[in-house]
């Protein structure tokens, strides 16, 4: 057909394109939207509908179906909160879901554990970490603190979801590492991709990328990471490309159990390079100090790195 697309069809095209996290054609969209009040009202109608769709059941209803019965509606429908889906609602429900069928797995500093899930997925838990698993929903995990490497068997109809703080990470691919410490979340992806907070910021993190975000509202950053280095802590092989020394020290502490803190002046020093943990504690910490240009001192509470 050669005639112009209808306003509605154009609005649909914009909306579909905007669901791509990388969409950047906002100025042209702005021009279109402002060109005619009918454009804005078509777009708003569609955008409200699109928001409501969050509450649709993930699994299709049987073909001959009358309007779905309540029993058939998935949890997702309920999460959507009566067509008023918002991040606040989702986060609130996340807190409520502390059911008795939750399993908590915790590791001491220096202790690592691997948890095999029924669907073949594996979660490797670094030391000093805690994770919650939900027996009723094996495709969901909550990282309370510490660090975990997820080898997820991807299933189309049930993407794996990791809750961390108030945020959600949804797998699009397979292998990713999540670190949660003191209000800071880091997601590093080695294979496939994940989507960070699909309901709000909707940021895709592909293999070879690393996302860092603070709960305090600080600006989050996506940067490169070597895919091969993600989850390297499992073999004691830690590779950094400009991570702050405080994060490096915390990861070594989790992995080896050796307590290492950083003085305020040294915490932000960017650290680049590969680091192999070792059983020789003093040598390992000396190496770290040498590589980062700091001084290591030992006291009763462990080691401190300072300038």
């Amino acid at each position: 057909m050669t005639h112009e697309p209808t306003i509605e069809a154009t609005a649909i095209d914009w909306l579909i394109r905007q669901r791509d996290p990388a969409f950047a054609d906002w100025e042209r969209f702005s021009d279109w939207l402002g060109a005619d009040p009918a454009h804005a009202s078509a777009y708003h109608e569609l955008a409200l509908l699109d928001g409501d769709l969050e509450a649709l059941p993930v699994h299709p209803a049987p073909a001959n179906d009358a309007p779905a019965e309540p029993a058939r509606l998935s949890r997702r429908w309920w999460l959507g909160g009566a067509l008023a889906a918002s991040l606040a609602v989702v986060a609130g429900i996340g807190v409520l879901r502390q059911a008795p069928d939750t399993q908590r797995i915790e590791t001491a500093l220096g202790e690592t554990r691997t948890v095999a899930l029924a669907d073949g997925s594996r979660i490797a838990l670094n030391g000093g970490s805690a994770i919650l698993l939900d027996k009723a929903d094996p495709r969901r995990a909550t990282l309370e603190r510490g660090q975990a490497l997820f080898h997820v068997v991807h299933r189309d109809e049930a993407p794996f979801r990791v809750s961390v703080g108030a945020a959600q990470i949804v797998d699009v691919g397979t292998v990713f590492d999540v670190t949660r410490t003191d209000g800071r979340t880091i997601v590093a992806v080695s294979e496939g991709a994940v989507v960070y907070n699909p309901a709000s910021s909707n940021v895709r993190v592909d293999a070879g990328r690393r996302l860092a975000v603070d709960d305090s509202g600080g600006q989050a950053v996506v940067g490169p990471v070597s895919p091969a280095s993600v989850g390297g802590w499992q073999a004691g092989q830690l590779v950094y490309d400009g991570a702050p020394l405080s994060e490096v020290a915390a990861e070594i502490e989790r992995t080896t159990g050796v307590r290492i803190s950083t003085s305020p002046g040294a915490a932000a020093i960017p650290f680049r390079g590969a680091f192999q943990t070792s059983a020789d504690e003093a040598r390992m910490v000396e190496d770290l100090a040498a590589l980062s240009g700091t001084r290591a001192t030992r006291d009763t509470g462990g080691w401190t790195l300072s300038r």
Partner: peptide, 16 residues
């Protein structure tokens, strides 16, 4: 909630 549920049922059926 009931109205929303019915509405979702209709949208779901339209999709099907």
């Amino acid at each position: 909630v009931l109205i929303a549920r019915q509405e979702l049922g209709r949208l779901n059926a339209a999709l099907g």
